[in-house]
Simulated scan of single mutants.
Amino acid sequence: MPSPSLRTAREHRTRRRGIGIGITRRSPTRSDRDEGRREPWLRTLDRLGLGFGS
């Protein structure tokens, strides 16, 4: 069984990843609702070559 500090660190990373995924999943919907205006998160992903072409 992992030590409590190791388990806590792993849970923290998982939560952060979940937040990033949630933001990424909601952003295209907001963009569609706002007449195609992309929010800063989507623009950042586009600049990094990770954006979604919608």
Rank of each mutant, 00 (worst) to 15 (best):
S27Y: 00
R33E: 15
A9L: 11
F52C: 07
H12K: 12
R38F: 01
L48C: 04
R26P: 01
R30T: 06
T8S: 14
D32P: 04
G22V: 00
M1Y: 05
R17T: 10
I23H: 08
F52E: 15
G53E: 08
I19F: 07
P4Q: 03
G22D: 00
T8F: 08
T24G: 12
L6F: 06
L48F: 06
R30M: 12
T24E: 09
G18N: 13
P2M: 02
D34P: 05
D32I: 10
G53M: 01
R15V: 10
R13F: 14
R13D: 14
R16H: 09
E39R: 05
E35A: 12
W41Y: 13
E39I: 03
E35W: 04
T14W: 04
L48I: 03
R17G: 07
R13Q: 12
T14S: 10
G22S: 05
I19N: 06
E35G: 12
L50C: 03
R7Y: 06
R33S: 15
L48D: 07
R33V: 15
L42D: 15
T44R: 11
M1W: 05
R30D: 12
M1L: 07
R37F: 10
L42N: 11
D46L: 06
F52A: 10
R47W: 06
E35D: 14
L50V: 03
E11V: 05
R43Q: 14
S27E: 11
P40G: 03
D32E: 13
A9N: 10
H12F: 13
I21H: 09
L50G: 02
R30N: 13
L42Q: 14
R33I: 15
L48S: 07
R17H: 08
S54D: 11
S54N: 11
E35T: 12
P28W: 00
I19H: 09
T24M: 05
G53K: 06
T44D: 14
G20S: 04
P4C: 02
G20E: 08
P2R: 01
S5T: 10
R38H: 06
D32K: 12
I23S: 06
G18P: 01
R43C: 10
G49V: 02
P2W: 00
R16I: 11
R43G: 05
T44S: 13
R16A: 14
T24N: 05
G51T: 03
T8E: 15
A9W: 03
R38P: 08
G22Q: 02
R15Q: 08
D46H: 07
E39Q: 05
G18W: 02
D32H: 10
D34M: 12
R43E: 14
R47Q: 11
R47M: 09
T14C: 05
L48H: 09
S54K: 09
F52L: 14
S3H: 07
I19D: 15
L45S: 09
G20Q: 04
G18T: 05
R47C: 05
G53N: 08
